[in-house]
Simulated scan of single mutants.
Amino acid sequence: MPFITHLPGSTPLVLDSPHSGTAYPADFRHACELSVLRSAEDTHVEKLYDFAPAMGAHWIEAHFPRSYLDANRNTTEMDVSLLDAPWPEPVETDPKILSKVRLGKGLIWRTTDEGVPLYDRKLGVAEVQARIEQCWKPYHAAVAQAIDAAHRLHGYSIHINCHSMPAIASGSATDFPGEEHADFVIGDREGTTASKLLSQRVREHLKARGHSVAYNHPYKGVELVRRYGNPAAHRHSIQLEINRKLYMDEDTLALTAGAEPLKATLRSLVEMLLKTDPRAL
């Protein structure tokens, strides 16, 4: 299986799902039970948006699991304590960005959301470099290519970075363990990756469908919106988190009856975004 799927579209809308991958590579060699690792996935997110390519949206999807390599982190977010030798590339020094690394959630995860160690060994530098070459670089190249294509054709782009979140924040997942999440969280890094008016329109649309919606808390958006969002250049990137209780059983990972109504809401959101030119807001 390829590491990613990239389906080019024809509209200004780009959707990507970096954390829904379920293909666990043979070289992962983790010490966790697979059932424990699977709780890290944004399970089924790709299914929730499976209608979008037929509507002309660009679609990028990771097949590798988030716990193997997190495409929503920069390559500098390296937890050097995992390695058996010095890391030869630049390492992040910003304390705010390093907070996730300290939680065990850097580019290569050290622990699960519940603090369970992933490995009983040190990782080789070449091993990690191979993950970057095979997973991170192709994924980011596809997202950048899709956004560039959308912007070139239409003069603007709207990028939705698609995620899911547990109903209750895990102990090692965020700085707010135990917090009960809203139905949706919209993140634009305080208006720096997308027009606040566009984010507000998304929020109002979801609230009108009967959902609770939080804005930039507890998720502001991470590397994929930070890297590709530039509202001054008409490149808008929003991270959209969906509460898993809306569509799945978090224990069994099975889809529930809520999945279809949620898909209808997401379809209506995509339809709205396809009719929205942020330059006119």
Rank of each mutant, 00 (worst) to 15 (best):
P261S: 04
Y215F: 14
A146D: 02
L69V: 07
L103V: 02
T256L: 10
I4A: 00
I97H: 10
R73W: 09
P261G: 03
L262E: 05
P2N: 12
S195P: 09
E133Y: 12
R152A: 15
T43M: 14
D42R: 03
K105F: 12
G221D: 04
I238S: 04
V213F: 09
V80K: 09
P177I: 07
L69P: 00
L197A: 15
G56E: 15
L83K: 07
A52N: 10
A173G: 15
P88S: 12
L153S: 13
D120I: 03
P117R: 06
A126F: 11
E61G: 01
K207L: 11
S157P: 07
F28P: 01
E133I: 13
E92M: 04
I97E: 10
A142V: 00
E133G: 13
A214I: 08
H163A: 07
Q200V: 07
G171N: 12
T75Y: 00
W59C: 08
K196M: 14
L253S: 02
R121C: 12
L48I: 08
Y219W: 04
L37C: 06
R110A: 11
E89T: 13
I132H: 01
A52K: 01
K207Y: 06
K122A: 14
L253R: 02
L262G: 02
H205N: 13
R66A: 00
N216M: 12
L107D: 02
T192H: 14
A141Y: 05
H234Y: 14
E77D: 14
S237F: 06
G155V: 09
V125R: 06
H236N: 03
R152D: 12
M272T: 08
K207F: 02
A208N: 09
I168C: 11
P231H: 05
W136N: 00
E127S: 05
E180T: 14
D251I: 05
M1V: 15
